[in-house]
Design a protein around this nucleic acid. Structure first.
Lengths: 231, 231
DNA sequence: TAGTGGTCTAGACCACAAG
DNA sequence: TTGTGGTCTAGACCACTAA
């Protein structure tokens, strides 16, 4: 009658399944308002707290959105955008509800290393901005990040607000590029002395090294980066 | 007296802050059992449901682990192990509390494509196991995955239970290897007709393509994989 | 003002794990 | 058997939003 499953198990899971079915089968298309919690409780013949438990699970999954004082709305299942956002650490963490502080250690015009020169296909003698940052979560350092970006491609990058915004977003907005591809290598390393100091771990602690290159539309390599992660 | 904040706001947030502080400051080191929910309710002068709301939030964050019938235990903020587990989709999803079903489409001994042959540094004429799988979350396909593993390195792989376990875990356990490095390329593609059919999207839908090679200790390439993700 | 979600209570019984 | 977390109730009042 109310659409509850015949299946056994906790009542809130039955409610959850029922509401999920409504949304997935299109009875509540994206953006539509669901019945209020009180109404659902009445329909399913359970208490409002039980309905809330079901709805909370769906909200955590991204299948519904709750708006205080307004209602609960059908939404899209967010699936696995995680991999996209490998491109942008800051945005990924924000999407997970984790506050990230980017502490800018330094940004300098430098002569690139041979590896970076090759990765970015630079002409001999060409300079890069070398951007060193520390990523902090809840005040604790979690990663040390070095990006190298050709001065020719992003002139004046050192004058922008690198501390507070996502580097990739900044490059996209100020220089009109769009990152579309990246290559990454993941491998374990042990913390060097300076890395250990920055990340507040003993030297030699196992870290994850991620090295990579990010490309924009035309296949142009724009960022050669080096990161080490704690944990 | 119970360590509740002076700060304003919902009571469950005060409880949450207090318990979080206990753990972060080491009063409950990793693995230690926290007071029971009833005990916490008594200490904080609130109902058990309020304590549960606080603990649920910490559990979602990974700062505590709950074990039915046993207790609640301090854990490590999981920080960013995400990147490690790029190596194993199944394990990563499980760690996030998402049930993944691996639907085995086929596993066959095949002659590899030229690209795979190069990636795996195969001798001419060498064969690979080509493992085609569909990843399902909540019954819906989210990714199509093709792995190629040299028959020489993992003989008899086609006889193992590829459907129910993580492929990498299986290889590590049965053949004594340990995956330590992987290379990945991420880029957007449009769904081909067969991919569209498998992932239940219209052909041409934007997908994320991840191509890569995974290596074991000695630097030996063991898996050349190709995956496309919805969304 | 009316209706919504957000918080909270003081109980209850069940399922699970371990001694 | 004991103690834990898991589920559930039938209310209550608050905070927010929109009419």
């Amino acid at each position: 009658m109310a659409g509850l499953d015949v299946q056994t198990g906790p009542r809130y899971l039955a409610v959850r399944r029922a509401v999920e079915r409504w949304i997935r089968q299109g009875q509540f298309p994206e953006g539509a308002r669901l019945p209020s919690e009180g109404e659902l409780a009445r329909r399913f013949g359970c208490s409002r707290m039980t309905v809330r438990q079901a709805i909370a699970a769906l909200a955590a999954e991204g299948l519904v959105q709750r708006r205080h004082g307004v209602g609960t709305f059908a939404s899209r299942p967010r699936a696995l955008r995680r991999f996209w956002t490998v491109l942008s650490f800051t945005e990924e963490m924000r999407a997970h509800g984790v506050e990230v502080q980017n502490h800018l250690l330094s940004v300098r015009r430098e002569r690139p290393s041979e590896a970076v020169r090759r990765a970015l296909a630079l002409a001999p003698g060409e300079l890069v901005y070398r951007i060193r940052r520390l990523r902090l979560v809840a005040g604790h350092p979690v990663a040390y990040h070095v990006s190298c970006i050709p001065v020719r491609i992003c002139p004046g990058l050192d004058g922008l607000d690198l501390a507070s915004d996502s580097l990739y977003r900044l490059v996209e907005e100020h220089y009109g590029y769009r990152f579309t591809r990246c290559e990454r290598v993941y491998r374990p390393v042990r913390a060097t002395a300076p890395e250990a100091r920055l990340l507040e771990v003993p030297p030699g602690t196992p870290l994850l090294l991620v090295e990579g290159v990010a490309f924009v539309d035309a296949g142009l390599p724009v960022d050669a980066c080096y990161e080490v992660y704690r944990e």
